[in-house]
Amino acid sequence: MVEFPEMIDIPLAKAIDAGMEWLLTHLDGFFDAIGFVILQVVNAFEAVFLFLPWFILIPLVGLAGWKLVGKWKSGIVFMLLLILIGSFGYWELAMRTLALVIASVFFSLLMGIPLGIQMARSDRTQSILQPILDAMQTMPSFVYLIPALMFFGMGKVPAMFATIIYAVPPVIRLTNVGIRTVDREAVEASQAFGATPRQVLFDVQLPLAKPSIMVGVNQTTMMALAMVVMGSMIGAKGLGMEVLIAISRIEVGQGFEAGLSIVILAIIIDRITHSFSEKK
């Protein structure tokens, strides 16, 4: 094997470490503020899901399954699956995980949809964002668990931060694609009547791009759920932590129960959010 010449040495790692150092010393207050906002939101969601008793939430999900997915059978299946989670003894942890997922999705959409719109409006923004999004999706997620930990300490906040970074690309991409593929004549018609860019966006582009945006929401939600499990490694309570504990104790059965509960949440969330993208 021919060795790569040692004299070519770009010290990226050192630079990034130095950058992190700088950020931590100079922007500490900024990260504290962000962390505070994230924490408030996730706590609010958690409060709601922990407050709702199981005998109200299960029928609500059943109803959503029936009305949104369109088949009463789906509603029944959803209810049975949730009862299964309860029977494993994971109801509370499942609710914490759910709150974490929904709060992460909330922030992802808050950032992702406006960014997607901006990306659709300008080719330059698109060419800048495209590689960043690729990196966010392909970078092994552990890589940003560590800086998240450094910025926000242990707990829910860094887990959510990492989750948002991991889960936001699909909704940005699909908002962008959805708006760019809206019928050109519908946009032109709106413009021809003297619509402002804002009117074009809200009257034509967003409604017509809605199915595509909803696919993005669906994918973002699924990725958030996958990441929340990883997030338990840095201290987010929930089903993921249970999996982690089971693995460390080599308790296969318990690990399987916790894992199955995550799968059940995933299936229900997927079917319900997917139904939005199919409806007109």
Partner: peptide
């Protein structure tokens, strides 16, 4: 007022 080949209507 403008009329388009593929109508350009708003389906929603």
């Amino acid at each position: 007022g403008m009329v388009f080949q593929h109508y350009g209507l708003l389906p929603h």
